[in-house]
Nucleic acid binder design. Structure first.
Lengths: 203, 203, 203, 203
DNA sequence: TATGAATGAGCTTTCATTCAT
DNA sequence: TATGAATGAAAGCTCATTCAT
């Protein structure tokens, strides 16, 4: 739960006949932007997939750029919420990393299109300042958590950005490999990776 | 040398007046595709930056897609060559990882546009099978090397893809962070990251 | 009175909350068509300014063209009524011209938007035959009056159309100049122009 | 002559197969803008009439607005040149007015579309500052000439703008009437109007 | 009766590609 | 061989009109 108050769960099916128009447009845009990129996706195609008229999109979003930004924010926030909800703030750093890792993988598995979209579009020129600001918040949060656990000697006495790069880049790559069929993300495999990445983090 | 026989060195300056037209076109396309993406870059703009006529591009490349594929292959190969050239096949796994890590970072620092381009475009719908095949070769190579060192108990007794994902994803993320100014890649920092990632790999 | 039974007085304020919807629509259309032209004015914008729903306009007017024609007729008639009401049929031609001139200027000053609208739209392709017929009636009237006074040697022994063109074109130009701020239409200035134009007409 | 160095003479035929593309576009735009207005004329229609591709227009003009401004300036300048060329600066004011009147009528008869276009579009919101500046120059010139002749007691001792409004508005109206078939502009008729308007001007 | 969300045809503009030079 | 003017299909977007409410 937590993440379920967001449109996360409701959006991975794409040709729904029910549902608000705005949501249908966002769903269609997610699938197409993830697959073909922003510039590679014509607005009329989004409209067709959403089952609405082309003009209708402009009743909900001021421009194609506004649409991609709305989409980006929605899913970035959903991802952040998913990972941070029920964060075991009073547990060990070990437990915290376990939580973050599991939630991130869970999000990517439940929302594969959203995961691809976020990976594909982060730091694109058409993202506005607000979208980029959200991006920044995650890093800041991660840095502060790791900074704290470093003080407690729970994690390695290292520059936090180095540790974050290693394990977070690792997680993203893991999911990508799985997406390309080079690896099957069985519960056992996930546990092994989680242990492995914790080895890289811990003091 | 190794990597120097490839167009690596000649391509990071972009307005050159000398040089073959084909190369000038590829250089211009690299800079523009890296910055604005494939669909976001008009062919006439590539021509202008290359200092050639728009029609000339079509004398060297059958289409815009052919151009991006040629570019992708060129740089992916250059990257592979850079990392694999002088590979210390007879040294310790530790030395091998050190070699790979240093070369990858070196490549990214010498060819920032190429690094961005490869990251941005991997697995795009307009890449053809041959381009994708090259992508695959790297992984296969890495897997076999790690498989061998696993046998020798030089690296952890783990599924190679898990280890590869972790450290390789880490390297890519490290470079990205540096590109965005969140980290300065000083020699010392690089050494620390290399040690860190080796810790994750080693038995 | 005369002209006051027409919607002349009620229409130069534009955001009225009272009043019939039809009238509010016509008022909004007048302001917008005068400022931006027919093709330059979206129907939804007319609706917004009129404070009605977009669909409501189509309950009162069959189409945008029907609206502009209704507007044209309304104001052309209002103008004709304004100029012809209380026409001193039994006075001297001199007095008659004075009346016409004063009334025309008065109309333009009281209804600047209507004056601009009529000037901008006369003989537009989207005006229908009926609208154009009204246009014609004015000229015919003027010609007959001037024809009569010519017989009486009150005005020059000239082709009436020539005299009409001169003084009527002059009046329109005078008002235009004033609208553009190139001239201030003080009572004294008006009197001077009236005398001048009479000099052009009189025998 | 004088005006013949400008594209005046060459532009009233519209479907020409010879001629520069830019000129063909301007000719087509003139006819269509004069007939249907700026907002009422789609760019592809201009292209079709000019016998060029739709995209070609944008090689010559940055936008539809740039096109209408170029057109406006071209013809406004042509008109000014036509009226001012060979201006009898050292002759009587009477001769000067005769010159201006004849040239203006001549221009309107040779370039009926241009005359309509200029009349229809003057002071439109899409005209830029430069276009408007040209507009202003004419008035300033006329005012100074009439101011001078007033000093010499060659014309009435009146506010120049009043006289200009009267006779210039008259000329425009005369041409309009002729265009609508309400008057035939025979040489004799023109001479009579010219005499009439001079009567209105002279001391 | 009145609405305004929805539409899709049509607008302005761009751009991958061609071809006369 | 190299060009870049020209193209027209298709892009992003607007708006006159409709119709379910």
């Amino acid at each position: 739960m937590g993440m379920n108050v967001h449109p996360v769960a409701s959006t991975q099916h794409s040709e729904s006949t029910e549902g608000g128009k705005r949501e249908r447009i966002l769903d269609a845009a997610l699938a197409l932007f993830a697959e073909r990129g922003f510039h590679g996706t014509p607005v009329p195609l989004v409209a067709e997939r959403a089952g609405v008229g082309a003009g209708t999109i402009y009743r909900y979003f001021a421009s194609k750029e506004a649409l991609v930004n709305a989409l980006y924010r929605q899913w970035k926030m959903a991802f952040i919420d998913c990972v941070t909800a029920d964060f075991p703030i009073d547990k060990t750093t070990r437990a915290q990393w376990s939580h973050v890792f599991r939630r991130a993988v869970e999000f990517a598995q439940k929302n594969p299109l959203a995961f691809d979209f976020l990976e594909l579009h982060h730091h694109s020129p058409y993202l506005d300042d607000e979208s980029r600001a959200i991006e920044h918040r995650v890093l800041t949060l991660a840095q502060s958590i790791l900074g704290a656990s470093r003080m407690l000697h729970a994690t390695r006495d290292e520059e936090p950005m180095l540790l974050i790069s290693l394990v977070w880049g690792g997680v993203i790559q893991l999911i990508r490999c799985a997406r390309q069929g080079m690896l099957e993300l069985s519960p056992e495999m996930l546990e092994r990776f989680e242990r492995l990445s914790w080895e890289a983090l811990r003091a």
